[in-house]
Design a protein around this nucleic acid. Structure first.
Lengths: 248, 248
DNA sequence: GTCGAACCTTGATCGAAATCAAAAAATGAT
DNA sequence: ATCATTTTTTGATTTCGATCAAGGTTCGAC
């Protein structure tokens, strides 16, 4: 079982749609009640830091709405984003007291948090929560390794195309019913954040986005609104195998 | 709890020291018996492929001896190593039918394998195996993210120093009793494999290894035998924070 | 030992992305 | 609306690592 078995679109459960996908799709009523008791919400404004690497972190959480980034920074300021947290993604590691990465809100962000200690206790007596977390962690590991290929071997143009394809694909799950052939979405990241994710500079990101537009691979309305007239064409620019599970 | 709580050096249990660390440090006798019944060993020669990405993989496994690599290849041949498997590391994903990466032996390799289906059944009724696997997977995710920083932001020299430091550190756990100040180990990888791991070309690897030797950071006896006279000095070349848990 | 095949090193040149620099566009505050 | 700030684009130049090319080592087979 992978996270694809819990598509966001299939879930409709009130104030916290995410929690269910993340940890308790198979929870019994008493387990849900325990989760209710230890949960709380936090919201952050765009740009705010959720936690700094090394800080104590006494909760684990699920993103409800908005976007956050996980990043690592070297002493001299070089920064690499190591994860992008979209709605339904899980943050925090059971058994770890301090945050391993900087977590930053890149848009207005709502998270559903669970106090760590009682969450760990619940995990201890509720195996399927651990199983679910293992599935999610394995998915994240796959994503991290896919990103290693991107960082280590792809050209700047391929990197940009790959990022756009990933955002388009992830966004598309939320509006599949669309009739139009072309895919439309808003970039949730600044050029600088894209650069930090892709291991590039913001100037290179800007140049390559311009180049993809000039070549007709994408259209831009404003700086952030992207139209992909032909998804196949964009995928062809990523360097990835076009067959396989890649298509939307 | 992290994998550091199961240091290899502390374990002494006969023909398969690894299995215990990986999945059954806390197993009951009947569980161990089940594992015995579904386990088998496979050995590979240096250079042999264990599985190709996409192939059916009906077992999960633990490395007993030797070194293997996980790598991804693009259609045009560009290759990125996404993981290095040393003794005690686990391969394979419960619930996944096919290999996601090429697995290749870089030295003579012995693996302790468990048939996947019965292993998954055992996992289903033995929560702590899943818990242990979750811990290991989270450690791997951390390692993958550390590698993302290396691939995205470090210079060639820093990449080489980082790889040497990691191998030295990992090797050092096997011979901590050493009296000498300097750390000595054999490089388990060819220059080409190092390049694939670091997102470089083999020529750049060769040049940077030569440069580190010229600058006295390392000494080489032959091509593969490395002496690190001053570990602090090497760590200073990695670009990482020198304080923190990094030191051996 | 000699031969051949991998593996490694070094040199010369090239090129993609970084860096340096400036200006334009968007955003938000007053 | 105006001004200040942030974000983005574009241009000129530099640099690091890739690429192309040629030898040198090591090691196993015979």
């Amino acid at each position: 079982m992978t996270s694809k078995d819990f598509p966001l679109a299939n879930i409709d459960c009130g104030d916290c749609p995410i929690r269910h996908r993340a940890v308790c799709a198979r929870c019994e009523p008493d387990e849900l009640q325990t989760l209710e008791a230890i949960k709380f919400y936090r919201t952050f404004e765009a740009g705010q830091t959720v936690v700094w690497a090394g800080d104590a972190m006494d909760f684990v959480a699920s993103v409800v709405e908005g976007i956050a980034t996980l990043s690592q920074t070297m002493e001299d300021g070089r920064t690499q984003m190591v994860g992008l947290l979209l709605p339904s993604d899980f943050v925090g590691r059971p058994g770890r007291e301090t945050a391993a990465y900087d977590v930053t809100a890149t848009s207005r962000l709502t998270m559903c948090c669970f106090r760590r200690k009682p969450f760990e206790e619940l995990m201890g007596r509720t195996p399927h929560i651990g199983q679910r977390l293992l599935e999610m962690t394995l998915d994240e590991l796959d994503a991290a390794r896919e990103w290693m290929l991107l960082l280590g071997r792809k050209t700047a143009r391929e990197k940009i195309a790959s990022l756009l394809a990933i955002i388009a694909r992830r966004d598309a799950t939320l509006k599949l019913a669309s009739d139009s052939r072309s895919i439309v979405f808003d970039l949730p990241l600044t050029r600088e954040a894209m650069a930090d994710y892709l291991g590039l500079t913001l100037e290179t990101v800007s140049r390559q986005v311009s180049a993809l537009r000039r070549d007709g691979v994408i259209e831009l309305e404003g700086k952030r609104h992207v139209v992909v007239p032909d998804m196949e064409r964009l995928l062809g620019e990523t360097g990835d195998d076009t067959d396989g599970g890649m298509l939307i």
